[in-house]
Design a protein around this nucleic acid. Structure first.
Ligand SMILES: [Mn+2]
Ligand SMILES: [Mn+2]
Ligand SMILES: [Zn+2]
Ligand SMILES: [Zn+2]
Lengths: 161, 161
DNA sequence: GGGTTATGTAGGAATGGTTACTATTACGAA
DNA sequence: TTCGTAATAGTAACCATTCCTACATAACCC
């Protein structure tokens, strides 16, 4: 269980933000899960506690919270952006069958950047690595039935059971 | 200069497509550049030769051409998808300052996947690696003037001079 | 060739995630 | 409390992408 202080204001550069009830709830909800939810998944989660919160508020606060380093904005390929309550740099695995996203508990390999340093005329300063594969569930499903493996993952189908 | 046959039909699985004038022009234009253009950049390029072509036609044909393996669809982070006339698997560098995208002429490192094979309970089957850095132009600009380094790259600002 | 059906085409309309705007409300300092 | 500012809910606008539909063309059979 994660407890977040709601007394001191958030800081971003030299701008300070209030910790409002909505912002607090969004932050608590994203810290609660490991599912890398999308903005509208978080909207649904927050709405269970604040039925009048609006989707725009969720988007705006996720932007602010990531600006303050309290959450991480993920830009994995695909239509919808995802958010991560874990702010440490880490890699992700993306299930190619159901769309689920999980952490890969290995620290960032900076050696990758040095490997590629001379390969182009760019000065390499960072990298983004995303692993692709099959989650445990889909491994089993794939092994069992060799039917057509479920067409492209629907928009809201990557809930973690 | 790249010449593409327009006599034999394109094949995708067991579906065959005609090589229409529009499709031909789009293919020629993307093969002509190394800039990884977006769909509407290609629309502008094609429009210089076919003033009546529509944006939807460009999207549809890029989809078809990538399905046939004649072009590559790139899903780098960011709003707009990019397309690549080079169909071989290769890595890309993304300039964090101007948004330009270039090739990294190093073949795909499959070792990456084996490194991460046991790190999660996923079966790793692929990976996406994107390098970030400063292009030659922006290296110079950064060194010369330490002014504010140009806000986030505008939508149509990454033309290669 | 003539007729018929399947498939592809171009352009415009619709979709959906995201952001921007506006009137109203909540907060915090004086 | 009062005043000034930031945040909110609700809604409209935005824009990349996808879908729809009337029309055209190819393929097929006879
Ligand atoms: Mn994570
Ligand atoms: Mn390329
Ligand atoms: Zn899965
Ligand atoms: Zn640059």
């Amino acid at each position: 269980m994660v407890t977040i202080t709601n007394k001191e204001p958030l800081l971003s550069h030299n701008r300070k933000f209030r910790m409002t009830r909505q912002r607090q709830v969004i932050l608590e909800e994203i810290k609660k899960v490991r599912t890398h939810p999308t903005a509208d998944q978080l909207y649904e989660m927050a709405r269970r506690r604040l039925p009048h919160i609006s989707l725009g508020t969720v988007y705006r606060n996720l932007e602010i919270l990531s600006e303050c380093g309290m959450v991480q904005k993920l830009d994995l390929g695909g239509a919808q952006r995802r958010f991560d309550g874990n702010t440490k740099k880490h890699y992700h695995v993306h299930c190619t069958r159901c769309g689920r996203v999980d952490d890969v508990p290995i620290e960032a390999v900076v050696k990758i950047q040095t490997t590629f340093q001379g390969a182009s005329n760019y000065k390499i300063t960072g990298h983004k690595l995303e692993l692709l594969g099959l989650c445990p569930q889909c491994k089993k499903a794939k092994k069992a039935l060799t039917k057509r493996p479920g067409r492209r993952a629907g928009r809201k189908s990557n809930s973690h059971p």
